[in-house]
Amino acid sequence: MTTFKLIINGKTLKGEITIEAVDAAEKEKIFKQYANDNGIDGEWTYDDATKTFTVTE
C-alpha cells in the first residue's frame, strides 16, 4: 500500500486528506468522488514524486 494525499483548494472547502491505496488510479477515483460529493469542481493535478493530488477551484 502507498500513502496518497489530496490537497483541496476550493472556494468553500480547503484542507488535506491522506489515505492509503494500492495505486494512484484507485486513489484518483476515490478522491474525485469525494470532491464531487462535496461540490468541488476544479482543475486536478498529480505529483508522482510526492504522491499528491491537488484540486483547485
Rank of each mutant, 00 (worst) to 15 (best):
M1L: 11
M1E: 04
M1N: 08
M1V: 09
M1S: 06
M1P: 07
T2G: 05
T2R: 07
T2S: 07
T2L: 13
T3G: 03
F4P: 02
K5R: 09
K5N: 06
L6D: 02
I7P: 00
I8N: 00
I8V: 08
I8P: 00
I8Q: 00
N9H: 05
N9E: 04
N9V: 13
G10P: 01
G10H: 04
G10C: 15
K11F: 13
K11I: 14
K11Q: 10
T12F: 13
T12G: 11
T12S: 07
T12M: 10
T12H: 12
L13D: 04
L13N: 08
L13C: 15
L13K: 05
L13V: 12
K14A: 11
K14Y: 14
K14W: 14
G15L: 15
G15K: 14
G15M: 15
E16L: 10
E16N: 04
I17M: 05
I17S: 01
I17K: 01
I17G: 02
T18L: 12
T18M: 09
T18S: 06
I19T: 02
I19V: 07
A21S: 08
A21T: 10
A21M: 14
A21W: 14
V22M: 09
V22A: 11
V22T: 11
D23W: 13
D23G: 05
D23C: 12
A24Q: 12
A24G: 13
A24F: 11
A24W: 13
A25N: 08
E26G: 12
K27A: 15
K27Y: 15
E28G: 07
E28P: 04
E28M: 15
K29H: 09
K29R: 11
F31W: 07
F31D: 00
F31E: 00
K32D: 03
K32C: 14
K32I: 11
K32W: 12
K32G: 04
Q33H: 04
Y34D: 00
Y34I: 13
Y34M: 08
A35R: 05
A35D: 00
A35W: 07
A35N: 02
N36P: 01
D37M: 10
D37K: 07
D37R: 08
D37Q: 08
N38M: 14
N38R: 14
N38C: 14
G39V: 05
G39H: 06
G39I: 04
I40E: 02
I40P: 01
I40K: 01
D41K: 13
D41G: 08
D41E: 12
E43A: 09
E43T: 11
E43Y: 12
E43Q: 09
T45S: 12
T45V: 08
Y46S: 01
Y46K: 01
Y46T: 01
Y46E: 00
Y46D: 00
D47Y: 04
D47C: 07
D47T: 02
D47N: 06
D47L: 01
D48A: 09
D48T: 05
A49H: 07
A49Q: 09
T50E: 02
T50P: 00
T50K: 03
K51Q: 07
K51R: 12
K51H: 11
T52I: 05
T52H: 04
T52M: 03
T52G: 02
T54V: 05
T54M: 07
T54W: 10
T54F: 10
T56E: 04
T56V: 08
T56C: 11
T56I: 09
T56N: 06
T56M: 05
T56Q: 05
E57Y: 14
